[in-house]
Amino acid sequence: MQYRIILKISTRAYQALSSTQPAYLNSMFAPARHSRQLQSVISNPLSIPRVKTKAGIRAFSVAAPTLWNSPPANVILEGNIVLFRRRLKTYLFKAAYLP
């Protein structure tokens, strides 16, 4: 059940970032700013807002960037939604069932 939720939130984040969702969802995300050039810039990391409550951690504006930053860069490569979901499902399957 947990991986299904991760898949749904990550899919919504992908759609919001690719402008297929309303503008208010896209406005929730901001790119992470680093003082130096990092290798992770290839995967377009998002900044995670600071929150103090459990309800805040579960909010879409916090959960989506957290989940977006967690898979490896090859999952979040440019492409369409079908390729993204396929890569993410493979990554989640390996995380759930393979040691």
Rank of each mutant, 00 (worst) to 15 (best):
M1Y: 09
M1C: 03
Q2H: 13
R4G: 05
I5L: 15
L7V: 04
T11I: 12
Q15L: 15
Q15K: 15
A16G: 09
A16T: 10
L17Y: 10
S19V: 10
A23R: 07
A23K: 07
N26V: 05
M28C: 14
F29Y: 14
P31W: 02
R33I: 00
S35L: 07
R36Q: 13
Q37F: 12
Q39M: 09
S40Q: 08
V41E: 04
V41I: 05
S43E: 00
S43G: 02
N44F: 04
P45E: 07
S47G: 12
S47P: 03
S47Q: 10
P49T: 08
R50L: 05
K52I: 06
A55E: 05
A55W: 01
R58L: 15
R58C: 14
A59N: 15
A63E: 13
A63Q: 14
A63W: 05
A64V: 14
P65M: 14
P65D: 14
T66A: 06
T66D: 01
L67K: 05
W68E: 04
P71L: 00
A73K: 03
N74V: 03
N74G: 04
N74C: 09
I76N: 01
I76S: 01
L77P: 01
E78K: 12
I81M: 11
I81D: 08
F84I: 08
F84K: 05
R87E: 00
L88G: 00
K89Q: 11
K89C: 10
T90Q: 12
L92Y: 01
L92I: 08
A95I: 03
A95W: 03
A96F: 08
Y97M: 03
Y97D: 05
Y97Q: 02
L98H: 07
P99T: 09
P99Y: 05
P99N: 09
